[in-house]
Simulated assay, not measured.
Amino acid sequence: MLKDALLVGLGSFLGGSARYIVSKLLPLWIASPFPIATFAVNIIGCFIIGLLTALPTEGWLSTNTKLILTTGFCGGFTTFSTFMNENNALIKDGNIMMAAFYIILSLALGFAAVIMGIQLAKAI
């Protein structure tokens, strides 16, 4: 388990670093009030985790490499990719209502939590 945690940590470091680089460079190339960097990272992360999840472990990626890239890199790059991958798994397993509940609740409570955090910070 410690080895796996270190592998995930390595991947997270690389993913978080990549996210930071994209967030600094993309706005230099595309000027927009739309949060293009976060949007791009989320969509790219979803594509990467979908690709890696679908690749067979045998012959393509070792279990350790898949762990570094999915849980580590994609998790550090964006948790949105993991969120979408989990919803895909719920739908594949026939849990469509659970996926819908997870999506709606995550978006609503996530947004509410951001607002509450902002309000708390203003009150301090």
Rank of each mutant, 00 (worst) to 15 (best):
I103Q: 12
M84V: 15
I68R: 01
G94M: 00
F80M: 12
N85K: 14
F77R: 14
L67S: 06
F83K: 03
A99W: 11
A54T: 04
N64C: 00
I91E: 03
L61V: 00
A99D: 12
A100P: 06
I96F: 06
S62T: 15
G94W: 05
T82C: 00
M98Q: 06
N85W: 01
T70F: 09
A54S: 11
K92E: 06
G59E: 01
I104T: 13
C74K: 12
T63H: 11
N87S: 02
E86D: 11
F101D: 04
F73K: 06
I91S: 00
A100N: 08
G59D: 00
A100V: 13
T79M: 15
E58C: 00
G94E: 05
I68S: 00
A100Q: 09
I96G: 00
S81R: 08
T65M: 15
F80G: 06
P56S: 12
Y102F: 14
L67C: 03
G72R: 08
N85Y: 07
N95F: 13
G94F: 04
E86H: 10
W60G: 04
I68H: 05
N64S: 11
T65E: 05
G76D: 09
F101T: 09
T79A: 15
T63C: 10
E58G: 03
F101Y: 06
G72D: 04
F80Q: 14
T53M: 10
L61K: 04
M97R: 02
M84F: 07
G72Q: 01
N88L: 09
G94I: 03
K66Q: 12
T82K: 06
L61P: 00
N64Y: 03
M98D: 11
S62Y: 15
T65D: 12
N88A: 15
L105S: 13
T82I: 12
G59C: 03
L61M: 08
S81C: 10
L55G: 08
K92H: 01
T78M: 09
E58F: 04
L105V: 08
I104E: 11
A99N: 08
M97N: 12
T57V: 15
T65W: 14
S62L: 15
D93Y: 00
I68G: 00
Y102M: 14
N87Y: 03
E86V: 07
I104M: 15
P56E: 10
T71N: 05
A100F: 14
A89R: 09
F73D: 02
F83V: 05
I91T: 09
F80T: 10
G75P: 09
T65C: 04
N85H: 12
L67V: 02
S62E: 08
M97Q: 08
T70P: 05
A89T: 07
T63P: 05
T63D: 14
F73N: 10
L52R: 07
I96L: 05
G75K: 01
P56L: 11
W60C: 07
K92N: 06
K66V: 06
M84L: 08
C74I: 14
N95M: 13
M98F: 09
D93V: 02
T70C: 11
L52Y: 01
I104Q: 11
S81K: 07
L52D: 04
K92C: 03
F83T: 06
G72E: 02
W60Q: 03
T79D: 10
G75M: 05
A99T: 13
